[in-house]
Design a binder for these strands. Structure first.
Lengths: 191, 191
DNA sequence: TTCATTTGATAACAAATGTTATCGTATGCC
DNA sequence: GGCATACGATAACATTTGTTATCAAATGAA
């Protein structure tokens, strides 16, 4: 799982082996809840194989806010960073192979590597990138129609359209399942 | 302007005076464009008095994405951090008193204070806070009706409703000016 | 003041979107 | 294979929201 990253981290083999040993491998079926709503989660997950969605309950309806695939890391940020009860549920969509690490172990690693400016800068860039991603998604809600948002999704995140059940995608785009079905149908018959 | 912050920064008076001297005070009328679309801006503004909006052009319509008031800092993040041409316009709404600082001077300060963990942590927290704010705003678009978003705005950011012309607020909430007017009218006559 | 411009309310109509219900197909499980 | 369940398409209708146009009030500049 981590071999492909080995050469990107300027660490001794000893340190590298210690750090990667903090990760725990699990295999889970689809629809496995990894983090429950209201739970204070101190786990971060990395996806080796499979697919995860983050959703929250709003008046009985389940609204999906994010999707994650292979090689991405997932946590309830509020819960992980601020020790708040998680406002969201983190759940697998497909049978998945995951690696998790505790916040305690991450903090230990971060404390040890903080003098390595290269790694520090990469972490800061990751934070910025996530902010940029949110801004982009948010802009799309004030400037694009649902149809345009769906076209953007096909263009920019084809994995979502290909692997995720459609009714999860609907709330991610901010429309009802019926309307997403209409959008697809209209795009199909216009062409 | 900066006196109220003095005790929060563990710096010598000498360094404090040097750093604050990098800021330049300007007074501008309302509707002054501070950063133009397409410009690579290397300025960060701090608002002493007044009010600023950030907007972008979408097919001839001007869509507002953010508002800023006294004591907040404003830049085109994309442009400031990544040296990209700014996708947005930064413009005053009221006659304003501003302080600006160049990226070059900020980088100099950051380089000098980076060993002060207290300041470093505060900066990282600011980045996180901005991400959380975006997430919250974004969630509101997939879970709330425009009416609910307007009620949230009154509750959480009353300054915007009180000081900003209504047609700017409409695009910020993702509705037409006519519809925002309808929302207000309906709320008024229901009570 | 006077005049032009900005801002906001409203009406009438068109278009987009949600809701509920029904149906067919796919999928997973025994 | 058979059954329950999940998933997705579609129709009919209700509701929300956008568009265009008009008017009134507020604001700012000469």
């Amino acid at each position: 799982m981590f071999n492909q990253l080995r050469n990107k981290f300027p660490l001794t083999d000893e340190k590298w082996n210690e750090y990667t040993s903090y990760f725990n491998r699990i295999e889970v079926p689809s629809k496995t809840v990894l983090i429950e709503e209201g739970e204070v989660s101190k786990k971060l997950f990395v996806i080796e194989k499979g697919c995860i969605r983050v959703w929250f309950n709003n008046n009985g309806k389940d609204l999906t806010s994010q999707f994650f695939f292979e090689n991405q890391s997932v946590a309830s940020i509020e819960s992980f960073m601020k020790k708040f009860p998680s406002p969201v549920v983190v759940e697998t969509i497909e049978p998945s192979v995951l690696w998790w690490i505790s916040k305690k172990d991450i903090d230990k690693i971060l404390e040890e590597i903080k003098e390595i400016p290269e790694l520090r800068d990469r972490l800061i860039n990751m934070l910025f990138q996530r902010t940029f991603d949110y801004m982009k998604h948010f802009f799309s809600f004030i400037k694009d129609s649902p149809t345009q948002r769906y076209l953007n999704l096909i263009e920019e995140k084809p994995q979502i359209v290909q692997r995720v059940p459609q009714h999860y995608i609907a709330s991610y785009l901010g429309v009802s399942t019926v309307h997403l079905s209409r959008i697809k149908s209209k795009l199909l018959h216009e062409k």
